[in-house]
Amino acid sequence: MITRFLGDTTILLGRSLRHIVRSVDTIITTAVMPVAMMLLFVYVFGGAIDTGSDSYVNYLLPGILLITVASGIAYTAVRLFTDMKSGIFERFQSMPIVRSSVLWAHVLTSLVANLISLVVMLAVALLIGFRSGAGVLAWLAIAGVLFLFTLALTWIAVIPGLSAKSAEGASAFSYPLIFLPFLSTAFVPTATMPGPVRVFAENQPVTPIVSAIRALMTEQPVGNDIWIALGWCVGVLVVAYFLAISAYRRKIS
């Protein structure tokens, strides 16, 4: 059973990866928006923002990476929606394969696609002056947090992918997720925000995730932020996973 699952998932993963390779435009679109945002903030707004750090790129990058993932998973939802719509999802479900491998192949594809966009973002950041003295362990920790964040958001994306009525509907859920970093410490410190906004910004999941990654990149002590960040990621992951599985059960009995 488990070898069958791995075999089927590998075959289907190969299929979706081929989709990604053949539609390079989606990867470029995924990366263009966050790159543009990064350039805008660094070269237009950044000079007027006092973050207390000497390099605004260094301050900004963690939030930009989260925005990259948030816009990347919109395509995860659209890819799954396209499979549902075209009937190929039902074809796979009526074949002698481990049924859940269809869903897992989409999830793994999402991880690979987002990994590519994140590497592109990091390369652009290095070009415009991002520098970090973080060691291998710190970078592994950053990779781990981003991995969990991407996995959690991917399972959120599976829900509209399975249940949306249109491709626009399947991707619309990502807009609030893309917007969330603006209401956090990702771009500006919370000190100047009015009361309720500040309370929200300091207690929503993006803030501890951004703070933890920023601390790791700048070789500062991460404190409790890393645990709160991991808690949010795992919590969202578990809830989204069960909602996605129940949406899946409603489609295929």
Binding site: S23, S86, M95
Partner: peptide, 27 residues
């Protein structure tokens, strides 16, 4: 084997790749 109401084929793959995919999934 089910052939549904709408041709359930993978548009991005070639015809041959579609057939190879199904044959591989059927082991």
């Amino acid at each position: 084997s089910l052939t549904g109401q709408f041709a359930a084929v993978d548009e991005i793959l070639t015809g041959r790749e579609n057939l190879v995919l199904v044959a591989r999934l059927r082991n």
